[in-house]
Amino acid sequence: MTATEERVFVKPPSEVAKQRRGEIEDASRLPVKVKIRSLNFYYGGQQALFNNSIDIPAFRVTAIIGPSGCGKSTHIRVYNRIFEIYRSHRAEGIVEIDGKNVLSPVTDLLKLRKKVGMIFQRPTPFPMSIYDNIAYGIKLHYRASRGEIADRVEDALKRGALWGEVKDKLSEPATALSGGQQQRLCIARAIAVEPELILMDEPCSAIDPVATSKIEDLIETLRDSYTVVLVPHNMQQAARVSDFTAFFYKGHIVEFGPTKKIFTNPDNKQTEDYITGRFG
């Protein structure tokens, strides 16, 4: 557990990060976390993703935008192969995380999912105490003493910006928390197993605006330690929190680039029409 102890757990949005978003970075010069080539996805006989290719830069927040039903969730659900629990869902192509194709049949799914955390639209607290929610994942992947687990739970809750609100009621059921707190608990739970990549599928769609802004602040701090791929619940959120944006339309990746460029000066006509609200 030494690697975590060296990290700084709670940080306000760092100045570096804020500055970084002011400039337009060249994605091709950043280290790549996820490299996707010609990814196709099928729901039974119906194709949902067409020839997706994209390089997700490491330690940045990448937003995926597009009209509903365009394949945003489908796309990120390939990264941790969670789609596989449904028999008729099928993916083809190359999805390399740190140079390893996760779609290969020899991939260790449990290790992959430890490395790739996921946050869902609606908060999914497990029916147990706040403490046990966080400890659940830790116990799955580590042999640790009670004290070590307690430390790790505290770290995770701090990094999930929830510690202050729950430290006196760790043994209470997680379902008693508010929606926004539950969602931060889920983020803390994902963080507790030390992922490198965090997928967020419209994490704010079921919670109120105040809670949403807390989660956006949290995402801001996450980019220092993790690579985040976010399906925002509206375009404003993409503009607020992401460094890079990919625009999806009908299962195709139409355009990918720095968020600022996509929102102010996109190369593609379709992207521009979507951003300016002419369709979607």
């Binding site: 449990l110 430890k114 996921m118 497990f126 659940y136 799955l140 994902a190």
Partner: peptide
């Protein structure tokens, strides 16, 4: 039990 609960357990790397 909603599928999301299953998915979030599996997504943590639980068998």
């Amino acid at each position: 039990v909603p599928d999301e609960l299953r998915e979030s357990g599996l997504a943590l790397g639980a068998p």
